[in-house]
Computed example of a mutant assay.
Amino acid sequence: MRLLHTMLRVGDLQRSIEFYTSVLGMKLLRQRENEAYSYTLAFLGYGDESDHTVLELTYNWGVDHYEHGNAFGHIAIEVDNIYDACAHVKNRGGLVSREPGPVKGGTTEIAFVKDPDGYAIELIQKKIQ
Rank of each mutant, 00 (worst) to 15 (best):
Asp84Phe: 00
Gln125Trp: 03
Tyr37Lys: 13
Lys114Tyr: 12
Arg98Glu: 13
Ile121Met: 03
Pro100Gln: 02
Tyr46Ala: 03
Val96Ser: 06
Glu18Leu: 06
Ser97Arg: 03
Phe43Cys: 12
Gly45Arg: 08
Asp12Thr: 07
Phe112Pro: 04
Leu28Cys: 12
Val103Ala: 01
Leu8Asn: 11
Gln14Phe: 02
Gly73Ser: 14
Glu49Thr: 14
Glu35Leu: 11
Met1Ala: 11
Thr108Asn: 02
Gly105Val: 14
Ser22Ala: 10
Thr6Tyr: 04
Trp61Glu: 09
Tyr59Phe: 09
Asp64Arg: 00
Thr53Gly: 09
Thr53Trp: 00
Arg30Ala: 14
Thr58Arg: 04
Glu35Ile: 13
Val23Ser: 03
Leu13His: 04
Gly106Asn: 10
Ser22His: 07
Arg9Asp: 05
Val113His: 02
Val54Asp: 12
Gly105Met: 00
Glu67Met: 11
Gln14Lys: 10
His68Asn: 03
Arg15Thr: 14
Tyr119Ala: 06
Ser38Gly: 05
Arg30Thr: 15
Phe112Thr: 15
Arg32Thr: 15
Asp12His: 01
Leu28Ile: 14
Arg15Tyr: 07
Asn60Gln: 14
Ala111Arg: 00
Glu56Trp: 07
Glu78Cys: 01
Lys27His: 09
Tyr59Trp: 10
Ala76Trp: 04
Leu24Ile: 09
Ala87Met: 00
Arg30Pro: 11
Arg30Phe: 14
His88Asn: 10
Val113Cys: 03
Glu122Cys: 04
Phe112Met: 11
Lys114Trp: 12
Ala42Ile: 13
His74Tyr: 08
His68Phe: 02
Arg92Lys: 15
Thr53Tyr: 05
Gly45Ile: 08
Lys126Met: 05
Arg2Phe: 03
Val96Thr: 14
Lys126His: 07
Ala111Gly: 04
Ala42Asn: 09
Ala76Lys: 06
Cys86Glu: 10
Leu13Gln: 10
His68Val: 12
Val79Lys: 00
Gly105His: 05
Ala120Asn: 14
Ile17Phe: 05
Leu4Cys: 13
Thr107Pro: 00
Glu67Trp: 02
Glu18Tyr: 02
Ile82Lys: 03
Tyr37Phe: 13
Tyr37His: 12
Glu122Asn: 08
Leu123His: 02
Val79Trp: 00
Gln125Asp: 07
Ile17Glu: 13
Phe72Thr: 15
Ser38Gln: 09
Glu109Ile: 04
His65Asp: 07
His52Phe: 04
Gly93Trp: 01
Pro116Val: 12
Met7Pro: 11
Ile75Phe: 07
Glu122Thr: 11
Asp48Tyr: 01
Ser22Gln: 08
Asn60Glu: 15
Pro100Phe: 00
Phe43Ala: 10
His5Thr: 15
Asp80Pro: 02
Ile77Asp: 09
Tyr20Ser: 10
Phe43Gln: 12
Gln14Tyr: 06
Gly106Asp: 11
Tyr46Cys: 05
Tyr66Ala: 02
Val79Gly: 08
Ile75Gly: 09
Tyr39Ser: 15
Gly69Pro: 07
Arg92Ser: 13
Leu4Phe: 15
Gln14Asn: 12
Ile124Ser: 00
Pro100Leu: 03
Phe112Gln: 09
Leu123Lys: 00
Tyr59Ser: 07
Leu29Ser: 07
Gly62Gln: 00
Glu18Arg: 05
Gly47Leu: 05
Gln14Thr: 15
Leu29Glu: 06
Arg32Ser: 15
Ile121Pro: 06
Thr40Pro: 12
His88Phe: 00
Asp51Pro: 01
Leu57His: 12
Asp64His: 05
